[in-house]
Design a protein around this nucleic acid. Structure first.
Length: 426
RNA sequence: GGAGAUUUACCCAAGUGGUUGAAGGGGUCGGUCUUGAAAACCGAUAGGGGGUGCAAGCCCCGCUAGGGUUCAAAUCCCUAAAUCUCCGCCA
């Protein structure tokens, strides 16, 4: 949520900034609402003060034997008038909240505007692998190595589902274990959150109201719950409505969860296999920081995610996203994209973002400043570390050998009982 | 699924309609005493949001949340949530 004070003070600045997100905002109506809201508020509050005063005088008047019924009438009279104003005020407040809550986050000043086409690769790691033989794609490899069963996946679950089998399951789990062990080494706290969350959590993360239709809602539970689309949703809500002490910050968490997404109709042939499904595994990192520390935390998260891919020995790049390509709640995002040889393009395996105080405002996540003793909103940041659904194919494709086998990245071997190579079973 | 109980400030807890901005503890902070500490004693400390104002201040809302009754509610009524206990069911 954008600070309404900022809109009040610098509407043109906010308007211009949101334009970079390809969001055309018109604040004239909002500012008018805001003005009348505050005027109404004064009237309503003054009336309340009057009523309070009158009511408080009743006991004394009674004691003095005065006729108090006149006071009652007077108060009722004010109350009747006030009721109308209050109703109007409530409506105004609702309109303002709805309007502001729908606004996306303000992108950082240094971002270029526009969409995907303006993303900029800022780092490239390793070299494009070269093959002296005809390469296979990950679907072919996963099948021939017996790692993934797509057919039975479709049989038992339908489209957009696959089954990790045997060594495939172990490779998947090894990846997760590898990520987990690295985050633990870095002092992050391990969280296993529930996968079913309430509506408020989606709102605070900034996914709702805009993306209510992009998640899976469950029947049969009141109040309704949805399957989390990313562990970020759970993690940024962990400290919702809390006031932390300054000394507790930064808070560093990571969580493993499957991520459930509708991905409505977004299949393209080049994306067959496990690049896109209704469910994928991801380890997610989240930090809560003081505002002045969030830039450094952002760098840390990007570096951590990059380190994981690097340790896996994969060729990848980091892109700084243009304002229009970063998600609704975020002020800044870098994507880490791993190279998929069969399609010759780079696919996102991690997205590192700084939400600044956008989520914290929605969730009232604050800390008390040691010096001023005042509460301030924290900054929240998140980064995948990592999603396996693209790393898994990238490993298969980048590590494939001429004989159809695939080498296991060294860092994963300890998590796979020392297996160094995956051999074709057919 | 059924029945009951609970929900007050950092923690425990009093409070069943009227100066309750909320008793009493504990804690925390400061002090006295002490070589230092403990103990004892003295003092301070009650959250959060908002309006207005240059400011001091004034005002509104705050006793889980949301409604309601009333001139007046922590106190009465309704709804919801969470916690606990018991019963049932069950992977």
């Amino acid at each position: 949520m954008i600070d309404i004070n900022l809109i009040r003070e610098k509407p043109d600045y906010v308007k211009e900034a949101l334009k970079k997100k390809m969001w055309d905002a018109d604040f004239t109506e909002l500012l008018a609402w805001d003005k009348s809201k505050r005027e109404l508020m004064q009237v309503v509050e003054n009336n309340k003060a009057e009523m309070n005063k009158l009511s408080a005088s009743v006991p004394a008047a009674k004691k003095a034997g005065e006729d108090v019924s006149k006071i009652f009438v007077k108060v009722k009279d004010i109350a009747a008038k006030n009721a109308e104003f209050e109703k109007e005020l409530k409506e105004l407040e609702q309109k303002i909240t709805d309007f502001v809550a729908a606004l996306p986050n303000i992108p950082d000043d240094d971002l270029v505007g526009g969409g995907k086409e303006n993303n900029k690769v800022i780092h490239t790691y390793g070299k494009k692998p070269e093959f002296s033989f005809k390469i296979k794609d990950h679907v072919e490899l996963a099948e021939s190595l017996g790692l993934v069963d797509y057919e039975r996946g479709a049989k038992i679950a339908g489209r957009g589902a696959w089954i990790y089998t045997n060594l495939g399951a172990r490779l998947e789990w090894a990846l997760l274990n590898f990520f987990i062990s690295e985050h633990l080494k870095d002092g992050y706290t391990f969280i296993l959150p529930p996968h079913l969350l309430n509506e408020e959590s989606g709102y605070v993360a900034g996914q709702f109201p805009k993306f209510r239709q992009d998640v899976f809602w469950l029947e049969g539970l009141e109040p309704q719950r949805f399957l989390l689309p990313t562990a970020e949703t759970a993690l940024v809500n962990y400290h919702r409505n809390e006031i932390m002490s300054e000394d507790e910050l930064p808070k560093k968490y990571f969580a493993y969860t499957p991520c459930y997404r509708r991905e409505a109709g977004s299949y393209r042939t080049e994306e067959r296999g496990m690049i896109r499904g209704y469910q994928f595994d991801k380890v997610e990192m989240v930090q809560y920081t003081k505002p002045e520390d969030s830039d450094a935390a952002f760098e840390e998260l990007v570096r951590k995610a990059a380190n994981l891919v690097e340790k896996l020995g994969l060729h990848f790049q980091i892109s700084k996203l243009a304002a229009g390509d970063i998600s609704h709640s975020m002020a800044r995002t870098y994507d880490i994209e791993v190279y998929i040889p069969s399609i010759g393009i780079y696919k996102e395996v991690s997205s590192a973002s700084n939400a600044r105080d956008y989520q914290a405002r929605r969730g009232m996540v604050r800390y008390r400043d040691n010096e001023t003793k005042k509460t301030r909103f924290v900054h929240t940041l998140n980064a995948s570390g990592l999603a396996t659904s693209r790393i898994f194919p990238a490993i298969l494709e980048q590590y494939q050998q001429e004989d159809g086998s695939v080498l296991v990245p060294e860092v994963l071997q300890p998590f796979m009982g020392g297996i160094k190579v995956l051999k074709p079973i057919k």
